[in-house]
Design a protein around this nucleic acid. Structure first.
Lengths: 201, 201
DNA sequence: CCACAAAGTGGAGGGTTGCTCCACTTGCAT
DNA sequence: ATGCAAGTGGAGCAACCCTCCACTTTGTGG
C-alpha cells in the first residue's frame, strides 16, 4: 500500500448516522430488538420496576448484553416509551386544526397522563424519562412546548406558565391515578382544575 | 387457684389505651425511641431510602427489633413525621384568625410542601404517608379538610375540589422541587398556579 | 476465501438491601 | 423466687444491581 491509501476514504465503517449513533452489527441489532420487545412485555405485566435480569432472561440474552445496550433502567424505559411518545406527538399535531389552543393543551395533558400510566411505577420519573435522548421523548417535549407557546400567543393561558409546569402536573396526576387506582373521571377532574389554574384571568 | 379466679378481672395487663395500642415493656419503649431518633437523623442525612440496617445500627438495636416495631418503611416514616406534622397542624390552626380562607390554604400548602421536603425521596409517597395511623398525620389531614371546607363555605374555592386534590398537588410540587432542586420561588409559583385553578370563577 | 481485529456476548461473582425466623434473654406479675 | 410472655439480635436466605473479562461472532481488507 502506498501513501495514497490513506486518502482512500475512511468510508462509514460505522455509518455514524446523522445523530452520532453508530450502526450495530447485525446480531447486536437483533438482540437490541429482542431486549426492547421483552422489556415492553415485562413492563406492561409487572410494572417499571421489574428485575432487569428477568427482562434479559425473557429476551434470551445475557444480563451483560442488556447493560451494554441500555446502561441504565431509565435508558431502557426511554427507549420503550419512544414509539409510544412518537404516536402521542403525531396524534397531537394531527388534530391541531380541529381544537382550540386550550382544548389542545387539555387533550395533550390527558394523553400524556394516559401514556405515562401504561406502565405502573413510572409516574414519579416522568420528568426524567421525558429527557431521555430518544426520538419519541424529544418529539413529545417539542410538541408540548409548541402547544404552550401557541396558547400563550392566543392569550388564553398565563405567560408565566412553562412546559415544565405542565410536566409537573402530568406527573402528579399520573401518580395519583396509579396510587389510588383513580378513575378516569378523577384524571379529567384534576386536568380540569389545573387548566383553570393556568388560564389567563 | 379456684374457679373464682377466672372472675378476677383480666386487668389491663396490656393497658389497651383507647386506640387499641398495647403498652410496651419499659425496655421495648426505650428501644422504640432510640430507633425513632436514629431514623430521624439518618433520614435527614441520607434521604428516606437509607438502609434500614444502618438505621438499626445507629440505634444500637438489632435489625429484627426494628422490624418488630416498624414492620414497613412507611410505618417508620409515618412515625418519624408524626411530630413534624403535629406542629404543622397546630401552627395552621394557630394562625386561623389572621388569614383569609384562601391565604390559609396557601400557607397550608406551602408548609406541607416544605415539610415533605425535609427528607429527600419521599415526595412520591406523601399520599401514603399521610394515611399512616399516627397522631400527626391524622391531625394534618383533618386540618387540611377543615381548611378546604372553610374556603368552600366562604365561596372562594370551587365546590368540586377535594382535600385529595390538594395532596396531589402538594405531591407534585414536592416532587418537582426535590428532582430539579427547584428554588423556593418555583414552589411559590406552582402553588400560585394551583390556587388559581381551585378558585371559584 | 481466509484471517483476524473489533465488536459483541454471557454469566459468574461481589456488593447491597430487605425481611424472616428462632434460640436466647429480660421484665414483671404473682 | 419463679415462670412465662414479651422482647431481642443477628445469622441466613433471597432478590437485585452492576461490573468485569474470557470467550465467540461478524464482516472486512487482502
Amino acid at each position: 500500500m502506498h501513501g495514497g491509501g490513506i486518502l482512500h476514504l475512511q468510508v462509514a465503517k460505522k455509518k455514524p448516522s446523522r445523530t452520532g449513533e453508530v450502526s450495530l452489527r447485525a446480531d447486536a441489532q437483533l438482540n437490541r430488538e429482542r431486549i426492547l420487545a421483552a422489556a415492553e412485555e415485562m413492563f406492561l405485566e409487572h410494572g417499571a420496576n421489574v428485575s432487569l435480569e428477568d427482562v434479559a432472561k425473557r429476551a434470551n440474552v445475557g444480563i451483560g448484553t442488556l447493560y451494554r445496550r441500555f446502561p441504565t433502567r431509565e435508558a431502557l424505559l426511554g427507549a420503550a416509551y419512544s414509539a409510544r411518545f412518537l404516536e402521542l406527538a403525531e396524534a397531537s399535531r394531527a388534530r391541531d386544526g380541529e381544537l382550540t389552543p386550550t382544548e389542545s393543551v387539555r387533550a395533550y395533558l390527558e394523553q400524556l397522563v394516559l401514556h405515562t400510566n401504561v406502565y405502573r411505577g413510572i409516574a414519579a420519573s416522568l420528568g426524567t424519562v421525558l429527557q431521555t435522548d430518544t426520538p419519541g421523548c424529544h418529539a413529545t417535549s417539542e410538541e408540548g412546548r409548541r402547544l404552550v407557546r401557541r396558547a400563550q400567543k392566543a392569550g388564553v393561558i398565563r405567560r408565566d406558565v412553562t412546559f415544565e409546569d405542565l410536566v409537573c402536573v402530568a406527573t402528579a396526576i399520573s401518580l395519583a391515578s396509579e396510587q389510588s387506582a383513580s378513575s378516569k373521571s378523577r384524571v379529567a377532574h384534576l386536568v380540569d382544575v389545573f387548566l383553570g389554574g393556568i388560564a389567563s384571568r
